[in-house]
Design a protein around this nucleic acid. Structure first.
Length: 427
RNA sequence: GGAGAGGUGGCCGAGUGGUCGAAGGCGCAGCACUGGAAAUGCUGUAUAGGGGCAACUCUAUCGAGGGUUCGAAUCCCUCCCUCUCCGCCA
């Protein structure tokens, strides 16, 4: 796995330092460069020695073929030379390996370079609102979704702790039904637009997590199966990236567009006390994910199109939202550029992230070795992903947005055929 | 879980110690033939890294990692994966 364009490190290290600087990272680029050039020197020495060894090997073959005895002095001498070289090579190789794994570890921990378009900024507050859709419902006395859910018996928190632990939820009755309908509705919507539906494994190996950028840096964010090299996937992005790992995709097949429903599992380390009630922040949640593999030249339009496809879900569900472009300081590890969609929660009186649509440029493609082939040769593809949408948060938004004075919740027309009713009422 | 068979280039498939990065075929590209195409013929066609303006050249890679050897796709060890049969199972 190559995790950073090594050529870039050699030819334009300043670019790396500057771009990571925009993320607020202080990077000792010289130290990295020194490591890389040391490694290259060793590699050169080693391969020269190996060339010499290969030459001797061939010479021995030559001698024997032309009639020299296998134990003749000439052959003996060549053997000794060969052995000496073998030892030297082994010694160099050991150093080289140590150096390479150090270099690799340092590089693998570096996040993606932000896109040129990504606005500079230090944190969430510097994100840029680029669009608002719909009219947010603003009234006094509206309930939050967890109050509605508890009142209507849509889900159960306390017993879920008994089953698992906190931050797990059990959906019940109309709540379970709505969750299922939303998954189906979103899959249908995207499939109609030409997305190919995928239902991947949700246990993934370390190579998959590394390939999409969750490892090595965010090991503490995922649940791991202790006896196997398997983890519970934090997002469908991981299995889908690896679906094409180590492949050369025919250029005329691009873009490949996938839509996947999966449960997602996150440890949510460091979020104690935040969003403890309801559906917002859970260790296990459902999500429909959009994922594109595209030719590098098309990734910018693709990013706009993917984001629009996610927006279309909110619009079909009549949920007011705003679209925010993340600043460099708020960008995820693998992303070069990201639009977040934030849905309006009338009960909470706030916008909450419900989809995050990112282009990773060639970052994941490099880590996962996914290339495409066209007339000009092979090159890394670009990968893009976005939620279309997070199901639990969608339900929260629907509950808060549709709440009525009589205690029921009215649903958008798009869901009626799926849900079999235009509203949720007390059982 | 038990028994057996396997893992070689974009794909199929040959190769049991040296001249093998690897026959042959398919596919793909170019050229010839054709009014155009098909068929046919010829030529070319792996990836990554290093050096060189370039022609080119060096190294590594035959599931992964170790070992034997001057020399390993080929022999030995460990692991992973796939397939077949049996058992178990939603």
């Amino acid at each position: 796995m190559t995790v950073l364009d090594q050529r870039l490190l050699r030819t334009n290290p300043e670019l790396i330092a500057t771009q990571l600087g925009r993320r607020g990272m202080q990077l000792d680029i010289q130290a990295l460069q020194r490591l890389a050039s040391e490694e290259r020197d060793l590699q050169e020495q080693r391969s020269d020695l190996q060339a010499e060894g290969n030459r001797i090997g061939k010479e021995v073959g030559q001698c024997i073929r032309t009639g020299a005895a296998a134990d003749s002095p000439a052959v003996q001498q060549l053997r000794e030379q060969g052995n000496r070289i073998k030892q030297q090579v082994a010694a160099l190789e050991e150093q080289e390996k140590a150096l390479a794994s150090r270099l690799h570890a340092e590089i693998a921990a570096l996040p993606n370079l932000p896109s040129a378009q990504t606005p500079d900024g230090r944190h969430e507050a510097d994100n840029v609102e680029v669009k608002c859709w719909g009219t947010p419902r603003v009234e006094a006395g509206l309930e939050e979704h967890w109050q509605i859910g508890e009142r209507l018996g849509l889900f159960e928190t306390e017993r879920s702790v008994r089953i698992a632990q906190s931050r797990f939820i059990t959906l019940l009755g109309q709540g379970a039904r709505l969750e299922r309908c939303l998954i189906q509705f979103m899959l249908d919507l995207h499939s109609r637009k030409g997305y190919r539906e995928v239902l991947p494994p949700i246990l993934v190996n370390s190579a998959s997590l590394t390939g999409s950028g969750q490892l090595p840096k965010f090991a503490e964010e995922s649940f791991r199966c202790a006896d196997d090299d398997l983890w519970l996937t934090p997002t469908a992005e991981v299995p889908i990236t690896s679906f094409h790992r180590d492949e050369v995709l025919p250029g005329d097949q691009l873009p490949l567009r996938y839509v996947a429903y999966t449960p997602c599992f996150r440890r949510e380390a460091g979020s104690y006390g935040r969003d403890t009630r309801g559906l917002i922040r859970l260790h296990q949640f459902n999500k429909v994910e959009l994922y594109w593999f595209v030719h590098p030249q098309q990734s910018e339009q693709a990013h706009a199109a993917l984001t629009a496809d996610a927006e279309a879900v909110l619009e079909a569900l009549e949920l007011p939202y705003r679209k925010v472009e993340l600043c460099t300081g708020d960008l995820g590890f693998s992303a070069a550029r990201t639009f977040d969609l934030e849905v309006w929660l009338p009960g909470a009186g706030t916008y909450r992230e419900i989809s995050s649509c990112s282009t990773c440029a060639d970052f994941q493609a490099r880590r996962s070795s996914i290339r495409c082939k066209d007339a000009k040769g092979t090159q890394l593809v670009h990968t893009l992903n976005g939620s279309g949408l997070a199901i639990g948060r969608t339900m929260a938004a629907l509950l808060e947005t549709g709440q009525q004075a009589d205690g029921s919740v009215s649903l958008p027309a798009a869901l009626w055929p799926y849900f079999g009713s235009d509203r949720i009422t007390a059982d």
